[in-house]
Design a protein around this nucleic acid. Structure first.
Lengths: 236, 236
DNA sequence: ATCATCAAATTGGTCTGACCACCGGACAGG
DNA sequence: CCTGTCCGGTGGTCAGACCAATTTGATGAT
């Protein structure tokens, strides 16, 4: 017999406290500039130790919701961008689909990245990309999905833009997608098509053709995108 | 006589510790899955109390860089989007041509974000955008640069895409750019032109015109971009 | 030899009580 | 009225302790 089990989230005390403050701020009970009760007093009210109160305040501070001033107290500070992000995330966080978001982000980023790479890639970087595609061919030949080489290709392409910020974001997105990509590459035909469109991208990059590289990447994404995910073309 | 004084920043211990771990992760000394020394051991190594170590770990955990498991230990976890964004931000602080990279990233992201926002924005979000532009008008009227409202606008637009990943990345980029933006808006004419092009973006978003919104945003960026920064059209 | 079992050691989570540096307002002295 | 001092409250840090969960390895059965 199978039970319908759900992971039991062991809540730590400070997390519980943080959530209570989130609610208070969201409901307007705590407004910009308000002073929180002293840590010792909060500890008594929540019936926890001061350590737990402090860890909670540390979280709130990192989220930009409060600021602590020694000798003065801890104050609500909801003017920053961080705080807006935090509250937004805490309200909508439950049902968001990470995978869909990541696919969408890739759709936005990768084509212009290919264009930038075409303009800036050094010969060494082009050689590196070529190497990766050869490795992908070998992986496919021996029955593998080639997902590692696939990820490497996108990362190396981002590296060729010489933009540190882009590289970091792409590495994050690729990390998230690597698992899912394994599935979409299960169908044998797809592996070859993915490799073929990679080659077209590389050809345009090597030629320094920014526009062509951008289009080739857009086409590649359309090929490898799991069917049913039409992130950029909703019914509007 | 006037002295040239600078504010003294008092650093808290746990902040210092967090920064050291950021560096270790960035340099690759700590990799995915690695286990941190026990809290008691870290306290001894850093010559601080366990409380400070724990507050530092709390920060790292909130940033998605580590996870703690009772009885097991604390482990590096850099697979999530959060973690990369965090490291990105901490890297950018000490970076060199950070500004150029951030501008470039914005160039890539914002136009398609405007398109997505046009397709997905709720009426409440459109109203919020309208509000922000009114606030920007008021700020400019009283002689301010309107940089806060400017940042708010771009953030709210990202929020309207309902893509959590995009929102995070944009918030990171906008954080970096906020300071520089103040300078570029020093010339009075630019403030009005920025506001005017914001309004054109909003009009296309409100109309649900994805293509128009994308073009309007591209135009806006061209207007507010500091001269001399031709991020997307290098000499190739 | 292999595997299941259980107890000890280790670890994160929490609590208590203490000390320090700092801030803010009351208060006394000019 | 202004000024400097004092003192209580506050955050920042520390030390030591106990608990619960997990790991680990020795033990014993198969």
């Amino acid at each position: 017999m199978q039970f319908q089990l759900q992971t039991v989230k062991r809540r730590r005390l400070h997390e519980d406290i943080v959530q209570q403050f989130h609610a208070l701020i969201r409901e307007g009970a705590l407004k910009q500039g308000d002073r929180l009760p002293a840590e010792r007093e909060l500890a008594e009210q929540f019936q926890v130790s001061r350590s737990s109160v402090r860890e909670a305040i540390r979280s709130l501070e990192l989220q930009g919701l409060v600021v602590s001033r020694p000798g003065a107290g801890t104050f609500i500070s909801t003017e920053t961008l961080d705080s807006v992000v935090t509250l937004l995330a805490s309200t909508l966080n439950a049902g968001t689909d990470v995978l869909r978001d990541a696919f969408e982000m890739r759709h936005l980023l990768e084509p212009p990245i290919a264009a930038l790479a075409a303009q800036r890639a050094t010969s060494a970087e082009v050689a590196r990309l070529r190497e990766i595609l050869e490795e992908q061919q070998r992986q496919i030949d021996r029955g593998d999905t080639g997902v590692e080489a696939d990820t490497d290709f996108h990362f190396a392409l981002a590296a060729a833009t010489h933009n540190a910020a882009l590289i970091k974001v792409v590495s994050a997105v690729e990390d998230v997608l690597q698992h899912s990509r394994g599935q979409s590459l299960e169908e044998p035909g797809r592996r070859q098509r993915s490799l073929a469109s990679h080659r077209r991208v590389l050809a345009r990059v090597a030629a320094g053709d920014a526009t062509g590289a951008q289009q080739a990447m857009a086409h590649h994404l359309a090929v490898v995108e799991p069917s049913g995910l039409q992130a950029l073309e909703p019914t509007a």
